[in-house]
Design a protein around this nucleic acid. Sequence first.
DNA 1: CTGAAAGCGCTAACAG
DNA 2: CTGTTAGCGCTTTCAG
Lengths: 343, 343
Amino acid sequence: MAEKQKKTTIHDIARELDVTFSTVARALNDHPAISAATKVAVLETAKRLNYQQNKLASSLRSGRTNVIGIIVPSLDTSFFSSVVHGIERVMNENGYSMLLYQTGESLSQEKKGIETFLQSRVDAIISSVSGEVEVREFYEQISKRQVPLLFFDRAINDLPVPSVTINDYQAGFVATEHLISQGYKSIAHFTSDQNLTIFKERYRGYHDALQKYNLPLQENMIFKGKLSLDFGKASVQQLLDQQVPFDAVFAAEDYTAMGALQVLLEKGVKVPEEIGIMGFANEAFGAFVTPSLSTVDQQTIRMGEETAHLLLKLIGTKDYYGATPERLVLDPILLPRGSSQAK
Amino acid sequence: MAEKQKKTTIHDIARELDVTFSTVARALNDHPAISAATKVAVLETAKRLNYQQNKLASSLRSGRTNVIGIIVPSLDTSFFSSVVHGIERVMNENGYSMLLYQTGESLSQEKKGIETFLQSRVDAIISSVSGEVEVREFYEQISKRQVPLLFFDRAINDLPVPSVTINDYQAGFVATEHLISQGYKSIAHFTSDQNLTIFKERYRGYHDALQKYNLPLQENMIFKGKLSLDFGKASVQQLLDQQVPFDAVFAAEDYTAMGALQVLLEKGVKVPEEIGIMGFANEAFGAFVTPSLSTVDQQTIRMGEETAHLLLKLIGTKDYYGATPERLVLDPILLPRGSSQAK
DNA sequence: CTGAAAGCGCTAACAG
DNA sequence: CTGTTAGCGCTTTCAG
């Protein structure tokens, strides 16, 4: 039965070479004041003895872990997994590892995640928050400890924290404007409960676009709920049942739009001829369905990469929370497709 | 300008309460031999002083980090992000954090990931490998160090390492058998370059199903390449161009199947009446396209959860590499849909 | 160019 | 029930 043999340390290497362990440490860190000869010797024996640096010890002493904590609602979502993909790739290239935490949109989980990260002494935290109002105090803990924090997509705007987001207002506006330009005049909006700014902003964009083109905003055409295929189905069904006259749907999320589309097609309603549909998020299926689903692309991977780059730029700052926070706002990309152009 | 104030340690708490720091340490760890009174006092001042345990120090001393390293090709894939989702949720509930590493299918990245994890002294590593033959030696390093290792989906079968996979042979078999049962007789197969067992197995299942029903295996109907929408398109196009008589396609991955479907529909070929299509992986779009795409579900979230549970069960073992490795094989779920039933 | 010494913050015997 | 002691393996002055 294999015994857990002791790991080799710099002391072991030092003993082999008859130098002190601090010489070994320097050699391994490529310190300038070490002769090339000893460096070679150290590296060679390190390899021979199968040495692996103990990052725990090194971090404990140096105060830097080279680990970034990242908090997202869920990875089982193309949006977040794609952003995390972008972040990880860039941070990884720059020598950082990522600690991952999913909250499932639960506040207690979010608090636990932050606590774990703080205890793990991560060098920074990147987060997309669950409920903006409720989690303020958790995040204030982070700044109190002077740990760099960066928001992406979902930020708490009145906290002085850098962020990378997309312009959701503009996205809502151009999506609605596009429908209007195609001749639709009675546009319903299916959105989320309004506890997150991103949905408020999309709604505001929708609202202002209607206003700009002198179209009335009708309360009975606004549906708020948990965005999903079923919510989209139920909402459009309700419009139909109540015989609300509408000729387009702008859903704040693609699955919801898809639900609406499915019900309409089932009922024999012609899309886009009779009713136009716009989704949001550019899920993979949108390009493949019939008619193809018009939507708004959020540049997920780019968002991840920009998030990482901004953090890398700021992480060296002497006083992270002293400066006015840099907020990068990406432009949404309108993707008009079959479901919205025909009139 | 806010100064980086020193973090409070158990010594600070001890000083406040006029006890020794080891009493404080015990109180914080809820050690039985500490009076309720001091526990309360310690907890109270800990909170008041905003104490956060330093896990680096604790792990360095105890030898346990409660961190699991997880290696995947890419998170920008519904399959892997979904499995990671499942793993993280379960491990998190059991007090573990996840360090994440994406390889982008690159061997050097895979090696770097393993090295980082070993240096970070993770308590275990969970991995889905990139190239089985080529990365053997990296993985042997892990067992040499007695660090628990678990494979999911893509395993190196001749290494004595536990794993959670799905039965890809059976999946390939039932997918093909389903097509046959629907009356299709000339079934093409679009698959990956055969460096990974999972694709070899799917192919073997396809092969044996044909054999069982006395259908000939035709070399000119087998296409191997980098699975993707474009590969699917190019492959059917080639079948069409060469006028190979075929009446069904079994693709080892959904996007590839979708590419085939798109080209056929463009050409006016009736699916499923003239040609049947089966995909693989149950991507979200499959349920929404027209005709809906038949596919095989891999139980991704469940795979993640089972992976976590198996690891949790094994991680306590005294001699992880002494026992014969437990290999959990999940059953694939055939999802027959519109694209394959009509004849 | 190398050595000596201190200590990061905690855990875990061993005493009492 | 609490205190003492000895490190975990490394980084980082300060000497020489």
